[in-house]
Design a binder for these strands. Structure first.
Lengths: 146, 146
DNA sequence: TATTGTTATACTCTATAACTATA
DNA sequence: TATAGTTATAGAGTATAACAATA
């Protein structure tokens, strides 16, 4: 039988809570004055330098979109592009020291946002939530209907 | 201490799973050839007729956006607008019989999507997930940072 | 010929404000 | 003057394809 109200549906609940959680996280990502996507890019660069193409794949954004992101980060002095000597088509992207400092602030803000979001849950409950979310089936296959 | 990888963060996990869940739900909402927002509008109209303004508030969309939605639904014969005799500024919006039939198909598709999404969880686990999600703090206050 | 990064273009969404008709 | 609905416009976001440099 159909649910009377969309709020009765677990899928809607997960979708809506996820959306609001994402909005809160994005606000935290913007703490250093960066566009959330730019801050995400810094997070992705934290472990070390990588090629522009791999970076786009890791961020799951189109390479053409990454161009603007890196232009922003580079002009703000937070990241640098340099040619790969081994393959001069490639750009190696690396975070600068200023970028690492900005990332620290972003990390702190995101941590604070998560403390707020999950303030009503014990550490154990947060762990249960994590495990349950990990078991939600989110195949990437398209279910577009005509 | 900061999480090394964004995927270690529960907030990111909830946001990302929520987004993918939303995409799956939207695909199901489109089963009758409707835009997901139009299908959501039909769901909202299921309990009975309501004013256009209240409908916009219930859907949490701008009244000006609802105009296009209702134009679509009306031209497809799935909903009707009529003037409120008591206040001729208002429109009373009501679902037609064809709209109810379309909604049935939508409901079935959404139900199927939810069965897929939560196939790996027992009914009890789904209940635990629901309760935990209900306790996530998602205040609507803006946390925009400059 | 294929690949990397870049640029340009177009399309969707959304947010805003002006406009009308009613009150 | 305020409200319900409508229309028009502009901005952000995104997806796509064409392009130059290099392999």
């Amino acid at each position: 039988m159909a649910a009377t109200d969309s709020s009765d549906r677990l899928g809607f609940l997960l979708s809506f809570r996820g959306e609001l959680t994402g909005a809160r996280i994005r606000a935290a990502l913007g703490v250093a004055g960066l566009h959330p996507r730019n801050a995400m890019t810094l997070m992705q660069l934290a472990p070390g330098a990588m090629s522009q193409r791999d970076l786009a794949a890791a961020l799951e954004i189109d390479p053409s979109q990454l161009v603007a992101v890196l232009n922003d980060l580079e002009s703000a002095g937070l990241a640098e592009r340099r040619r790969d000597p081994a393959d001069r088509r490639r750009h190696i992207v690396e975070m600068t020291q200023a970028g690492a400092a900005a990332l620290e602030r972003v990390d702190a803000a995101v941590g604070e946002a998560e403390r707020e979001l999950f303030a009503n849950l014990t550490a154990e409950e947060q762990d249960v939530l994590r495990r349950l979310l990990d078991r939600v089936v989110v195949d990437r296959g398209d279910h577009d209907c005509g």
